[in-house]
């Protein structure tokens, strides 16, 4: 469940900030810059490198600030970026 769809953690002990891990499918990116411009936490920058089509994909520079809001995924017209909840993956791999 995305951050903004959660019930607010009023009353619970110390609410932990939600963290996201970013996945960029670089070769799908067309370098439009929407994700970089509209990430509310400035997690991304336009990288200097080229992908196989010659576009500059985004690069993660402040993953620690990612709050798994999902906006980059929604705003990417090329379906090239998304975030997953960091905790969820960790706990899943721990239990296995």
């Amino acid at each position: 469940m995305r951050v903004r769809e959660r019930i607010k953690p009023f009353g619970s002990e110390k609410p932990q900030p939600v963290k996201g891990e970013l996945i960029i499918i670089e070769d799908r990116c067309k370098g439009c810059g929407f994700c970089v411009e509209y990430c509310p936490n400035d997690v991304l920058i336009v990288s200097d490198k080229f992908n196989s089509k010659g576009y500059h994909p985004p690069e993660v520079v402040h993953e620690e600030n990612c709050r798994y809001c999902g906006f980059c995924q929604l705003v990417c017209p090329d379906f090239a970026i998304f975030s997953i909840e960091e905790k969820a993956v960790e706990s899943k791999s721990n239990t296995a």
């Binding site: 070769d27 799908r28 067309k30 439009c32 990417c76 017209p77 090329d78």
Partner: peptide
Amino acid sequence: RMPHIWCPGCGIGNAVSA
């Protein structure tokens, strides 16, 4: 079928995303 045919920065992908 990705990458799709739309140009970089075209908004049609956003409509599909929504």
